[in-house]
Computed example of a mutant assay.
Amino acid sequence: MDLEDIYVNVKNDDMKDITGPRTQNHSQDGGKDGKCRGRRCLVLMTVCLGLICVLLLVFITLQHITITAERDLLKSYKNTAEEFNHTIISLQDKNTDLMTEKDQLKNSFSSLNQKKMELETELRKLYERGKDRFFISSELKSWSESRQYCRDHGGDLVIINTEEKQKFISSLVKEIVWIGLSDIVNEGKMKWVDNSPLKQG
Rank of each mutant, 00 (worst) to 15 (best):
M1G: 09
E4Y: 12
E4Q: 10
Y7C: 08
Y7I: 10
Y7G: 10
V8R: 14
V8K: 09
N12P: 04
D13N: 01
D13L: 01
D14A: 04
D14W: 00
M15R: 10
K16Y: 00
K16V: 03
I18N: 07
T19F: 07
G20A: 05
R22D: 11
Q24W: 07
N25E: 13
N25W: 04
H26R: 14
H26K: 15
Q28K: 11
G30V: 08
G31V: 04
G31L: 12
K32P: 08
D33T: 14
D33P: 11
G38Q: 12
R39D: 04
L42K: 07
V43R: 06
L44K: 01
L44G: 00
V47Q: 00
C48D: 04
L49A: 03
G50Q: 02
L51G: 01
C53T: 03
V54A: 06
L55C: 02
L55F: 01
L56K: 05
V58P: 02
T61S: 15
Q63H: 05
I65F: 14
T66P: 06
T66N: 15
T68S: 07
A69T: 12
E70Q: 10
E70Y: 14
E70I: 14
R71T: 11
D72K: 15
D72A: 13
L73W: 15
L73T: 08
L73A: 11
K78E: 14
N79I: 13
E83H: 09
E83V: 04
F84L: 13
H86N: 12
H86T: 13
T87Q: 08
I88P: 10
I88H: 04
S90H: 08
D93Q: 14
K94F: 08
L98T: 06
L98D: 10
L98P: 07
M99T: 08
E101M: 07
E101R: 06
K102I: 01
S108I: 08
F109S: 14
S110Q: 15
S110N: 14
N113G: 10
K116L: 15
M117G: 15
M117F: 12
M117W: 13
E118F: 11
L119I: 06
L119W: 00
E120G: 13
E122V: 08
L123P: 05
L126H: 12
Y127S: 13
Y127V: 13
E128Q: 03
K131A: 12
K131P: 07
D132F: 14
F134H: 00
F135N: 05
S142M: 04
S142T: 00
E145V: 05
S146W: 00
R147K: 05
C150W: 00
R151G: 02
D152W: 05
G155P: 07
L157A: 03
V158G: 10
I159L: 01
I159N: 01
N161S: 11
N161I: 06
T162M: 09
E163K: 12
E163L: 01
K165A: 02
K167D: 06
F168P: 02
I169A: 04
S170P: 11
S171F: 06
L172W: 03
L172Q: 00
L172E: 05
V173H: 13
I176V: 06
I176H: 01
I179T: 03
G180W: 02
G180T: 05
D183V: 05
I184D: 00
I184L: 08
V185Y: 12
V185I: 08
N186A: 09
E187T: 07
G188F: 06
K189T: 06
K191T: 00
S196Y: 02
